[in-house]
Design a protein around this nucleic acid. Structure first.
Length: 966
RNA sequence: GCCCGGGUGGCGCAACUGGUGGACGCGGAGGGCUUAAACCCCUCUGGCCCCUCGGGGCUGUGUGGGUUCGACUCCCACCCCGGGCACCA
């Protein structure tokens, strides 16, 4: 082939052409370009102002784009091939957008506080910061090797002192504000104090236990009242105490069966004094703004369900011991209420419980106890135990006991029995219900079990028996009111909505209830008894009241301790108090501060913030990572995240991450963002305008006949089965990780093929939001693609450019422009798999058309540019060898010429009675008439229509022609 | 049970607002290059059937119906898989 003999054409083995695209070559290219990008700051995104404003002038007229990934926890295990799926996806998108003229902001930091580093510290004595930094170094190197185009000046870690100082500052903002229900927003607490002092405002209900006038309260009482209004407040309230972990947990961290999400230890409800965040004040806004977000419907639904808004009414039933308030969504069924139920923990239970059973009481109501108090005590003990056992195994069978007391139904004055039963939950509504067995299935089941009357007050379908004792279940559908009238109000004949309105108005008039809205969402428990978290910027004074550490005292640094663990207890120890590790730093705990009244000794808050704190606002710090005067410069926030049009929420333009954060992180971050918005620190009212959940990569895992997983890399496939160590094993697909013994690391893949191949493979296996199995043997397909593109640009033997500077032929040009249109579409819709397919098609065309080289530059260069977001190293290298010294990062992405997207001729299917029988080739743009004429002139069609009566002809220009015969 | 997704070749997946189903890739078959093999290149590849070897027919997108000249796409009912919630009054 080469006759000058100047250079051996193959490598040392004499087998592979010297300039073929191999893993070794890919590695050389990739490392060189990664160094160059870093050296040149290629991916730096200029801010409009501040220290990162260099180069802004050049992009000032471009649209901005903020692309964000959910940041990783720096685990010691490093990354597996599942982790980068989203990172690669956002990188491809961000690179594409840079090439279409956007100022793109994209970086990645670390969510680095958390339990694993702390547990490792407990075991080994290594400071969590040491572990964390080492892990960040490992993962940082893995990520860098992927060629992600991040602005590395911005990738902060939540554990950086310069970061958590501002986490503490934001806590002070939340602590320093209250929710003004009238203005429907958070306001600085000082404005509340002023309004209270001026007599313009009364304390909110429940915040002033004494009920005395503000002017009559002493300063300590006033502080307590004000503190009770704050968005971050201390509360002695039932919390989720997990003795096995030695800490309390948020509702979101407790599983449905009452165990800790982490560690699966029992969790107990018990009253403890803890920091809470008043997220419930934002329930309506968190719900309403979901409608403005570009999130998937399923994700929005998860948040909607978690917030759990229900409209209904509170109704007061009088008893001898005072009123019982119930919550119902069906006040229209009030005439059908035949008993009341209180949750076992309801505070009124003890007051209501009767002295003795009445004569002739139903034996099912007493649980065999001698007196109501005894029955209730036994039932409560049983209910408390039930959450410890598997609640599922109990099924839905209704249990409960009679309190030996009666309440009066306000609509008809009838006495109805009061029960305690665990199917009513203390944590929802008022912890008490009116039971309407005819129209609620749970009440129906209970009534049947306890022999209680079932009174129909909403008309069921006409084929239902008149006698409710023949009903098989409750009627929960719509219908008109029945037997629902007293002297003042009648619901008879009213449809459900009208009946609700009528009865609610009547109750309100009588002072026996009112319309209300209730939520499943609870306030957020914000204290953790852990070491590796943000210390609270709070101290306690001599009255044991909390005082904010002044801003200029921030940060409150984590103290050094000799033992990082909270005290843990026997997993069922429900009585010991939490002992946070910070309490061990004795000289840190006490601090002398001058808060305006001279130096005094204060005691520090010993809890730390939960893991979620940093992730509630990190996306804001990326914008302005070094600012020492503010958590983010408002002008910079407005530029990157501000609303783009009237009604826009603002926020990150694209946020990509796992669906496992559907409620916790995404709800908490929205809440903090809204507080900061209310206080005037932000222009955006939502953090993440558009959100996409990337799919999971699942890998084969193999189990032996005992059901134990075996190391997947040691399994061999043969004869249609799988074998490990000679034994048959079964295959399934699951999440990659240690537990399934199916770890596949990016490092292995990069060593074998290069980072660009890994990137292409992950993008090629399906749309970004779809889960897909990993199949290592299929990776070679995209590796070959890179090899073939390389070969169309460069001579494998000499490395010389083999592209021709001649105009592209019309056929090639059309193929190119069709590819451009499709590639762009795939990029915009995050369906990179289709983009790759079209690039492959184009390259295949060039290979076939120019088998000996000489593909036209006009086609090759656009192809290289289209490849760039997906396989950036290879594309950069080819671009440079094609004679362009500058990086292609901001080279304009090819644009399709609409004129070239259409052919001169088009192949039209000819259908007879809806079935494709043949195809004709006709010029593009034929009219309906001409198309029919062309079809009828076709020899094949003449044959097909011979002897047939054409009843109808449907001709769609450039699409098809269809004859209906018969 | 309720709420979201999703069912297309042996496998991963394509198919614009209803208009040529299976793009692209893996795997497989055949051929080329090679002493040989690997690499690489080319051709074929949903299923069944017929064939005069040019090709032709039938069938096919989870199941059963429907709308339509025409359905992977729209409607109704159902089955299966994945995820979430689950006594929330």
């Amino acid at each position: 082939m080469r006759d000058d003999g100047s250079e051996p054409k193959t490598d040392r083995d004499g087998l592979i052409p010297r300039h073929r695209y191999t893993a070794d070559l890919a590695a050389r290219i990739e490392l060189a370009w990664q160094d160059r990008w870093e050296r040149d700051g290629t991916f730096h995104a200029p801010n409009p102002t501040g220290p990162l404003a260099d180069g802004f002038d050049e992009v000032a007229d471009q649209p901005k784009l903020y692309v964000l990934d959910m940041f990783p926890y720096p685990s010691g295990a490093g990354l597996h091939v599942g982790h980068p799926l989203g990172y690669i996806g956002t990188d491809v998108f961000a690179r594409y957008k840079r090439m279409t003229g956007h100022n793109v902001m994209h970086t990645l930091g670390y969510d680095a506080f958390g339990l694993p580093a702390e547990q490792y510290a407990v075991q080994t004595g290594t400071h969590p910061r040491v572990t964390t930094e080492a892990n960040i170094a490992i993962i940082g190197a893995q990520l860098r090797r992927l060629g992600l185009a991040h602005d590395d000046r911005r990738g902060v870690a939540t554990t950086d002192v310069a970061f958590y100082r501002w986490t503490q500052w934001i806590f002070l903002q939340i602590h320093g504000s209250w929710y003004d229900a009238v203005a429907d927003r958070a306001r600085p607490i000082a404005e509340l104090e002023a309004a209270l002092a001026a007599g313009e405002r009364e304390p909110d209900p429940g915040t002033n236990p004494s009920g005395a006038a503000w002017t009559d309260l002493d300063p300590i009482e006033r502080r307590r009242v004000v503190d009770a209004h704050r968005l971050a407040y201390l509360q002695e309230a039932p919390v989720n105490w997990c003795p096995g972990l030695g800490t309390v947990l948020s509702n979101e961290e407790v599983t449905a069966d009452g165990r800790s999400e982490r560690g699966n230890f029992p969790v107990f409800r018990r009253p403890l004094k803890q920091w809470m965040m008043r997220i419930t004040a934002y329930a309506d806004r968190l719900l309403a703004d979901l409608d403005h977000l570009e999130w998937t419907e399923s994700l929005k639904n998860m948040q909607r369900h978690w917030i759990g808004r229900s409209e209904g009414a509170e109704v007061r039933f009088s008893t001898e011991s005072g009123p019982i308030t119930v919550f119902t969504t069906r006040p229209d069924t009030l005439f059908g209420a035949t008993y009341l139920v209180l949750a076992p923990e309801h505070p009124l239970v003890d007051e209501l419980v009767g002295a003795a059973w009445a004569a002739g009481v139903d034996s099912r109501w007493t649980a065999g106890a001698a007196a109501p108090a005894e029955a209730v005590a036994a039932y409560r003990a049983q209910a408390a135990r039930k959450s410890e056992v598997d609640s599922q195994s109990e099924g839905r069978a209704k249990t409960g006991v009679f309190l030996g007391a009666y309440a009066t139904n306000p609509v008809n004055g009838e006495p109805i029995p009061v029960f305690v039963a665990d199917y009513v939950l203390m944590g929802y509504g008022t912890g008490a219900i009116m039971a309407v067995p005819a129209h609620d299935q749970r009440d129906f089941d209970f009534a049947r079990a306890f022999g209680l009357p079932v009174t129909a007050v909403v008309a069921p379908p006409t084929d239902w028996p008149a006698d409710t004792s023949a009903w098989k279940g409750a009627w929960t559908g719509e219908g008109v009111g029945l037997d629902s009238a007293n002297d003042e109000v009648s619901l008879d004949g009213l449809a459900v909505p009208a009946a609700k309105t009528a009865i609610t108005a009547w109750l309100a008039e009588r002072g026996a209830g009112q319309g209300t809205v209730t939520y499943k969402l609870r306030d957020w428990l914000f204290s953790r008894q852990r070491y590796w978290g943000e210390p609270f910027p709070i101290v306690f004074d001599e009255h044991d009241l909390p005082v904010a550490v002044p801003e200029h005292e921030l940060p409150v640094l984590l103290p050094e301790v000799d033992d990082y663990s909270p005290r843990t207890f026997a997993i069922d120890d429900n009585t010991s108090d939490p002992e946070p590790p910070l309490g061990r730093a004795e000289d840190w705990v006490e601090v002398t501060l001058d808060l305006g009244d001279g130096p005094k000794v204060y005691r520090r808050e010993l809890n730390t913030m939960p893991n979620w704190a940093g992730s509630c606002w990190y996306e804001l710090r990326y914008l302005d990572p070094t600012n020492e005067n503010a958590f983010v410069d408002p002008a910079i926030e407005r530029y990157w995240m501000g609303p783009q049009h009237d009604g826009d929420t603002g926020g990150v333009d694209l946020y990509v991450g796992g669906v496992e954060h559907a409620v916790l992180h995404l709800l908490y971050a929205r809440f903090w963002h809204k507080v900061l918005f209310d206080l005037g620190h932000l222009s955006s009212r939502e953090p993440f305008r558009r959100l996409v959940n990337q799919g999971y990569i699942q890998a084969p895992a193999y189990a032996d006949d005992r059901g134990f997983y075996v190391e997947a890399s040691e399994v061999v496939a043969r004869d249609g089965g799988w074998f490990h160590d000679g034994q048959t094993v079964t295959r399934e697909f699951g999440k990659i990780g240690k537990s399934l013994k199916n770890m596949i690391t990016p490092d292995d893949l990069i060593a074998e093929f290069g980072a660009d191949t890994l990137r292409l493979y992950e993008m090629f296996t399906g749309p970004l939001d779809q889960s897909r199995p990993w199949e290592t043997k299929a990776v070679v397909g995209v590796f070959r693609l890179l090899q073939r593109i390389w070969r169309n640009v460069l001579d494998e033997d000499t490395g010389a450019v083999r592209v021709a500077d001649v105009p592209a032929d019309p056929d090639t040009l059309r193929t190119l422009h069709r590819a451009i249109a499709a590639v762009r579409d795939g990029m915009e819709t995050l369906r990179f798999n289709t983009s790759i397919a079209r690039i492959t098609e184009l390259n295949n065309h060039l290979t076939l058309r120019f088998p000996d080289g000489g593909a036209p530059r006009d086609a090759v260069e656009p192809m290289v540019l289209m490849l760039a977001p997906l396989a950036p190293h290879t594309a950069e290298e080819l671009w440079q060898r094609l004679g362009h010294p500058e990086s292609l990062t901001r080279e304009p992405f090819p644009e399709a010429d609409p004129a070239l997207l259409i052919d001169d001729t088009v192949e039209i299917p000819v259908q007879i009675n809806g079935k494709v029988k043949t195809r004709i080739t006709v010029p593009v743009g034929l009219t309906v008439t001409d198309l029919e004429a062309a079809a009828r002139a076709d020899v094949k069609v003449i044959g097909l229509l011979d002897g047939q009566t054409v009843r109808k002809v449907i001709a769609v220009p450039d699409k098809l022609i269809s004859f209906v015969v018969g």
